[in-house]
Amino acid sequence: MHWLLWSVVIITVLMTTTAWALWLERKLAARMGSRLGPTMVGRHGLLQPIADLLKLLQKEDILPEAADGALFNLAPILTAVFAIATVAVVPFGEGVIAADLDIGVLWVLAFGGLMVIPVWMAGWASNNKFALLGGMRAVAQAVSYEVPLVLASMVPVILAGSMSMTDIVHYQQQHSWIALWPTLPGLPAFLLFLLASLAESNRIPFDIPEAESELVAGVSTEYTGMKFGLFYMAEYIHTLVSSAIGAALFLGGWSGPFAPGLHWMLLKTLGLFVFIYVVRWTLLRFRQDQLMRLAWVWLVPMGLVLVFMAAVVVVWGGA
């Protein structure tokens, strides 16, 4: 029954963490722009996410007249469900995992890929042209960046010889973090993974589906109150989970120099999360076609080469 216990604990912790991840991002962004960020609601604005949540719960729920009601309402729920589902296979510590599936990596990638369906649903059902354009961009982008993401994740899978996240972490405990050794497929694969997951979670410089200077708010343009809140939350959960998976696949998960355990995993996840947001608040965004070119011309071939190299390491490297 431990998995049930862990799932409850993980989901609760995840939701709370998401709230303060939001706060962290706002503070970070503010500091980068020489501002203070939230300071008035609670100490250092720490209660800001709670206020936002309470506010969103009280807002009127508007269903646009021309919208497709069922799809419109389903989309945010599905987004949140898919985002949370990916957490299931993330190993936070020895045994601290909701479901230690044999196909952990596949599960994560599959649900990551599914995320695009509710996004497209939302874009289509809103009956708003900006939302539609946003949905179209999201689909194109997700389909393109899924490929390098899969290829990058294949490298640790091939090296460890298993698709289970726990096994991959064990492999790294015995050898070394994949991002460090074997350096040649390891480090580039890690960077490729980071880039592709930036694109997967629609973060700058790849945030064109919700590019609000062009498309107002992309797919969520017509959403109000808690439905928008779900989109908003799913986005952060997705980023958090991407960071956690990056940490588990490439940075050794819960292993660490002194006293391996949960704290290392959390620290690494946080590190990646902050990195993603520093990138977000630093860079400008690409244009649609440039994004596609980057994916197909550079990232996909690079991923193929890396997978091949990983195979070479396994066969001849004697790891």
Partner: peptide, 20 residues
């Protein structure tokens, strides 16, 4: 920069510097 980078991204940072 806001136009190129969006109000929720790097554009906003440049924007804030310029306003400063």
């Amino acid at each position: 920069a806001l136009d190129l980078g969006g109000a929720l991204g790097g554009g906003a940072t440049v924007f804030l510097y310029c306003f400063r």
